[in-house]
């Protein structure tokens, strides 16, 4: 191999930068043309940034007992408190905690639990789906029958079951610390089935394509073929499901927390806040319920719309 062709440097330099290429891609073009995508992406981005930087943005630390003043309880939004004269944008709850700050911290928990649960479900579902699709035989039969059985239960029921079992076997003193992680595993386990099904279906299509046969011929093992050849080609439907799953996972977390089996009051998620707030709805303190609920709605709706748009954008047949 002495006659290697030399690549002139000036030709290389002319290649468009990564950013221009991304900006010019069909995907970016579709995004720029869709108001729904732009708005929902902006909403998600703002909420995610708010959650990440919550300690910097939040005017109060709702979990620091020292900053709480019971006299500030039940302050109305934008009105000075009758006793202390402090103004809270979104009001306070019964214990004088700033609702805006609790929402920011609640958002953090909700988003973290949702994202981690989806990530967990994704890893589990992709692994099992790839195995079922590529290996086939009894491996496929077992995995897919388990998936079928799980699908006959509502996901929330599965999550509650897992949550209940986990609660039963963890010692009392660790329960509150473990709650978040148990929640993640419970929601993740209730959600892997759709990832596995989609990945298995796509794998069945891909594994019969000739590039996979070419890789087998070269002497690649099954593991390398699954990871390096098939996996990259089944990821775009997974991305769509992951986005829509994220919305569902956030709602599932909120539901569990609302039912009192989720995030503990010491680490309240949006769902916990709604549960706390609903007790005050009929006594006139509507803001304690309304603002967390509206945030949850905006988040779930924006993520969902983004997922819908993504599905259309990644599916060339719909264009």
């Amino acid at each position: 191999m002495t006659d290697l062709p030399q690549i002139p440097p000036q030709v290389r330099a002319k290649a468009p930068s990564r950013f221009t290429r991304a900006w010019d891609s069909d995907f970016a073009y579709q995004f720029r043309r869709s108001p729904v995508a732009i708005i929902s992406f902006t909403v998600v981005l703002v909420l995610v940034l708010a959650a990440i930087f919550a300690p910097l943005i939040a005017p109060y630390d709702p979990f620091d007992p020292a900053s709480l003043n019971l006299m500030n309880g039940f302050s109305k939004p934008m009105e000075p408190n009758a006793f202390t004269g402090d103004v809270f944008w979104l009001g306070t709850d019964d214990q004088g905690r700033d609702v805006f700050s609790t929402i920011l911290y609640g958002l953090r928990i909700s988003l973290f639990v949702g994202a981690a649960a989806v990530a967990f479900a994704m890893v589990l579902g992709i692994t099992l789906g790839l195995l079922a699709g590529y290996v086939g035989g009894w491996v496929e039969t077992i995995i897919m029958r388990v998936a079928d059985v799980q699908l006959t239960f509502p996901a929330i029921l599965v999550a509650m079951l897992i949550f209940g079992i986990a609660k039963g076997i963890t010692p009392v003193e660790y329960r509150d610390q473990m709650a978040i992680w148990v929640l993640i595993v419970a929601i993740g386990l209730s959600d892997w089935v759709q990832f596995a099904r989609v990945v298995r279906g796509a794998t069945l299509v891909e594994k019969n394509k000739e590039y996979v046969q070419a890789a087998r011929l070269i002497g690649r093992g099954s593991g390398a073929i699954m990871l390096r050849h098939i996996l990259p080609n089944v990821l775009s439907p997974v991305l769509v499901i992951a986005t829509i799953s994220l919305a569902l996972a956030i709602i599932a977390e909120a539901t569990l927390s609302f039912l009192g089996v989720g995030a503990p009051p010491t680490q309240p998620s949006l769902g916990t806040l709604i549960r706390i707030g609903q007790g005050f709805l009929f006594s006139g303190e509507w803001w304690i319920l309304l603002f967390p609920a509206a945030t949850l709605l905006a988040l779930a709706l924006a993520v969902n719309l983004l997922g819908d748009w993504l599905r259309d954008a990644l599916n060339p047949k719909l264009r």
């Binding site: 394509k209 000739e210 070419a214």
Partner: peptide, 15 residues
């Protein structure tokens, strides 16, 4: 031994 396949679209990994 090597092989060349029929469908030039399916025989190269698109990614």
């Amino acid at each position: 031994i090597q092989m060349i396949f029929q469908d030039p679209y399916a025989s190269l990994n698109p990614r």
